[in-house]
Amino acid sequence: MDKEIAVKTEGLVKKFDTMTVLDGVDIEIYKGETFVIMGGSGCGKSTLLRHMISTMKPDRGKVFLLGKEITGLGEDELDKIKKKIGMSFQGSALFDSMTVGENVSLPLREHTKLADSVIEIVVKMKLELVGLRGFENLMPSQLSGGMKKRVGLARAIVMDPEIVFYDEPTSGLDPIVAGVIDKLIIDLSKKLSITTVVVTHDMGSVFRIADRIAMLYEGKVVEVGTKDEIKNSKNGIVKQFISGNPDGPIRFFKQKDDYLEQLIK
């Protein structure tokens, strides 16, 4: 039986000036799975994520979310789909002028007609899920980086989304907090049976949380597979990335050829 597809991209191309960041990306993410997009810095993985959440428009290609093509949708239609997705940002992106409680409750207040008392209960439940119940009245500036990420996560899941996207969920966190966040991602995806899409280059995290993994390199998907398939990959790029070996097909110095010419110019 074919698995149902939650997110799909078809021939996605994005250029910034002359630089091609995405060069024909085709990805299929199934409902209920935890899908990790990994790749080096600047390989286009955050840009790819931004196309999936429709905050960026592709130059060419299509993005499907929950069966609907979103690249050409009007604002009202797009809003309907956005209410079914959640996003946890790299820098948590909490609204500075609002308390933790207000941040988490904002989508409910804006998109539902729930009574204040109900909203309060939902907020408490979501904060409990991320281990931060009782922090409702603090301002984001009073929280640590890991706590902010967890509040951002509570806000992302407050509308009970079908898909949650994570942009570098463990970057800049100590290993214990990173482990806590990873566990949270696994728990949420299993408990709430959410489709999870994670963009990261933290290899420890990748193998802890992923059902399937895609490796992005120079704007192209070089390999997609399960954890074991990726671990035992024969692809030189994937092997080098997993091992962190400085020598290999992934070039760190991009312009070797004209080095001498540039020196004496």
Binding site: I53, L78, I85, G86, F89, L94, P107, H111
Partner: peptide
Amino acid sequence: QIEALDVLA
């Protein structure tokens, strides 16, 4: 934060 608003519809 602006992008977050956008994603929250």
